[in-house]
Amino acid sequence: MVSTERKIKDAALQVFAEKGYDQTKTRDIANSAGVNISTLHYYYRSKDKLFKMVSDEVFAKFNQISDSIFESDIPFKEKINRFVSDYTDFCRKNPKLASFIVFESERNPEKVYDNIDFERFDRKIELELKHLIAEGIVRPISYPNFILNLVSLTVFPFLNKHMLHKMNGLTENDFNDLLEQRKTMVPKMVIDYLYLK
């Protein structure tokens, strides 16, 4: 059985992702969670605190997956494969997370960026990429272009799921099949472009 606290957090993530922080009212979250305002305020005293709790949880998951991949000693090609596979599965299990991260980082960057250690995350990947470029193993590519290709190709289907359903008549099963195909296709596209040998 899902706890009241969990229901409120899940509802908050959904409402924040749909409306953004500024347009969200605590009443919207309470209604979505099926609780009254006083219950919501009992667990989370303000919209700010609730947003912080949801953000902390979202980015803790993001950091955990990134660390497990990019801090490991596996080959860079395998890191690319794992990133696409693990983030596809992560977004499929948490369908509102991708839109929450993308849209809130645009609408309220100061409320979001404190939750990710971008410098540490970027430095590890960028140094490995630069080493591979210096060794002549991969073609010269800027780190922003590399990470943009990798992340956008992985996350874009989740940001446009409704459009894919509408324009292409995809069922939920079709969409899941598409995601499984992309877990192989996207790493191959990135690796085939990147590697010279």
Rank of each mutant, 00 (worst) to 15 (best):
M163R: 09
L194S: 01
I37S: 00
K161C: 02
E57S: 12
I137V: 13
T184M: 09
P75M: 01
M1E: 10
E119A: 12
K166C: 00
C91W: 14
R92E: 14
I137S: 08
H165P: 00
H162A: 14
K61C: 06
V112S: 06
F121A: 07
I141T: 08
R123D: 10
K77Q: 12
N36W: 06
P144C: 08
R123P: 00
Y43W: 09
K111Q: 15
T171E: 02
N145V: 04
S68M: 05
F100M: 06
M53N: 12
I29T: 08
F175R: 10
L132Q: 00
G34A: 08
Q181R: 07
D67P: 01
T184H: 10
A11K: 04
I141S: 01
K188D: 10
V58N: 06
K49N: 01
A17G: 11
L153M: 15
N168F: 12
F118L: 14
N63F: 00
E18Y: 01
V102E: 11
H41S: 09
C91M: 15
D22T: 09
A30I: 03
I37W: 00
S85P: 01
P95M: 10
A134T: 09
G169D: 00
M163A: 08
Y193G: 04
E126N: 13
F103H: 13
F70G: 00
M53E: 13
N168P: 01
K9F: 04
L153S: 12
D192W: 05
E106R: 12
V35Q: 05
T39S: 08
Q23V: 01
N94F: 09
Y44N: 03
T171M: 05
M185Y: 15
G136P: 05
F59M: 12
T24S: 14
I116M: 15
D10L: 13
G34H: 06
E18V: 01
E18M: 05
N145F: 02
N173S: 11
N149R: 15
Y44V: 04
N149C: 15
D192E: 14
P75H: 00
F51P: 03
L196T: 14
P144F: 05
Y42F: 08
N108R: 12
D22E: 13
E78P: 00
V15Q: 03
D117I: 08
T184V: 12
F156D: 06
D177I: 11
F90R: 03
A17F: 06
I147D: 02
Y42K: 07
K79E: 01
N160A: 10
V15D: 02
I69P: 03
D86Q: 11
K52A: 14
K19P: 05
D174W: 05
Q14L: 09
K188I: 02
L153K: 10
V102H: 10
P144G: 08
M167R: 09
T24R: 06
E126R: 13
S3K: 15
H131I: 05
D67I: 05
I141A: 01
G136C: 07
L194N: 02
D114S: 13
S66E: 10
G20N: 08
K183A: 03
G34Q: 08
F175D: 10
D117S: 11
L178K: 00
E126S: 13
N94R: 11
D192Q: 13
L50R: 06
